[in-house]
Design a protein around this nucleic acid. Sequence first.
DNA 1: GTACATTTGTGCGTATGTATG
DNA 2: TCATACATACGCACAAATGTA
Lengths: 136, 136
Amino acid sequence: VTIDPRSYEPTYVQLAGLIRAAIERGNLAPGALLPSEASLVQEHGVSRETARRAIALLRNEGRIVTRPGRGSYVRGVTDTDVVYVSREVQVATRMPSAHERQQLELPEGTPVLVVSRPGHEEQVLPGDRTIIEFQD
Amino acid sequence: VTIDPRSYEPTYVQLAGLIRAAIERGNLAPGALLPSEASLVQEHGVSRETARRAIALLRNEGRIVTRPGRGSYVRGVTDTDVVYVSREVQVATRMPSAHERQQLELPEGTPVLVVSRPGHEEQVLPGDRTIIEFQD
DNA sequence: GTACATTTGTGCGTATGTATG
DNA sequence: TCATACATACGCACAAATGTA
């Protein structure tokens, strides 16, 4: 209802905003199933393309995961492992390659942490369930 | 030529692969302009939709930036600031909100580093130009 | 300033394939 | 088998951004 096709803001951004707000309000709790594409099309009077773009936006923000044939779910806070690293390390972040995504079982919109230590191989850690602390 | 529409791999993923390979070969150097959507459509015999998806894939990997009205450019290695943190901190990563993206001037496909210290406010750092090191 | 060409952005429609239960 | 839901891919049209003549 709050979608205005003549706004300066693209329709799919507005739609994503509505869903994002519902998530942040807790109206869509972690694990909850989002309305299907067809529902969004019906209820907001937009094309499927527009609905899919809104969903893709949230997916790339790491807020939801989409399972083909099922739907999109609100991502919960995953249990995080704390990784202790020594003082000589450098920590950076980036998006994973497709291969790393598969390897680490990362959903779209999830970065990785890269821990480098001189003379050692880089360590690539899943960004959605890793916290780094320093330790001697 | 190396694109097979009947492959198990979606056309847009194959096309993205070709471009990614060109980047990694150095055939498309940092700063270089990618072929326009129209060129990709012409030369590979795909729809614009497919070409755009391939480009979006690379953008979400953080490999290219797209400037409306101009085209897509290969991202170079940005100069990185080294941020020194004390031993009590925790370091995590995630995708930025739209607001943070604007604030930090982050291209799409760029995560942020989040540095937390008990009793202090979280520090959100641009993931494309920050490396964290430990210091007393 | 204006007009134009180029390029990307948005939005719609359609069809078919794949995944799930 | 069947219904539902998402994925891929094509087509079209118009808008907005950019740079240039």
